[in-house]
């Protein structure tokens, strides 16, 4: 996932860097902007992986583009993480390309109702990962075909990985006193 490990034919792509006031767009950000999709650039992480934030409206279109475009070919979804920022919930998608061996992190902020668009239509691998994020973090993925709890029992109350989660389920033995 290092920048320097990109295959040589991709090297010219990285040169097309548009300077935005705060953080310059990376390779994927530039690609998205060239197709008219606005993305918030959050810079690179320590390994040089580009991080972008997309809006719920743009994500599916951007996903199709990132997956299909010859220069990005992000065809594998590695990980979906739900994060509870106390004020809002956020989904983080780790994407990887089995063609160019580069990766991208996409962040999507869920709306006030904890609803976020599902990336299942683009990357079917999101199926179980999004179910897990729903189960543990309570983010509702719109467009997911089968959004059920996956790790916790079906009768579980609440979403355990939220910061405000209290183990108050009356069915737990230690809450029956």
């Amino acid at each position: 996932m290092n920048e320097e490990n990109k295959s040589p034919e991709q090297a010219p792509e990285t040169e097309v860097i548009e300077a935005t006031p705060a953080i310059p767009a990376g390779m994927f950000g530039a690609l998205l902007e060239s197709k008219g999709i606005s993305a918030e650039h959050l810079g690179n992480d320590a390994k040089g992986t580009e991080i972008i934030r997309l809006t719920a409206e743009a994500i599916l279109k951007a996903g199709e583009l990132l997956k299909g475009d010859a220069s990005s070919k992000l065809d594998m979804l590695l990980l979906v993480t739900g994060i509870d920022w106390k004020t809002h919930r956020e989904s983080v998608y780790h994407l990887y390309s089995t063609v160019h061996y580069h990766s991208l992190i996409i962040k999507i902020v869920a709306d006030a109702n904890d609803t976020s668009p599902s990336l299942y239509p683009v990357w079917p691998a999101a199926d179980w990962h999004e179910r897990e994020a729903y189960d543990l973090m309570g983010i509702h993925y719109e467009g997911h075909p089968d959004l059920r709890r996956i790790l916790m029992p079906t009768y579980w109350l609440g979403h355990p990985l939220r910061k405000d989660y209290k183990e108050e389920d009356p069915r737990l033995v230690w809450n029956r006193r």
Partner: peptide
């Protein structure tokens, strides 16, 4: 390979 990518099999 398509099947593996579909499910994220590595």
């Amino acid at each position: 390979k398509e099947f593996c990518l579909k499910y994220g099999v590595t």
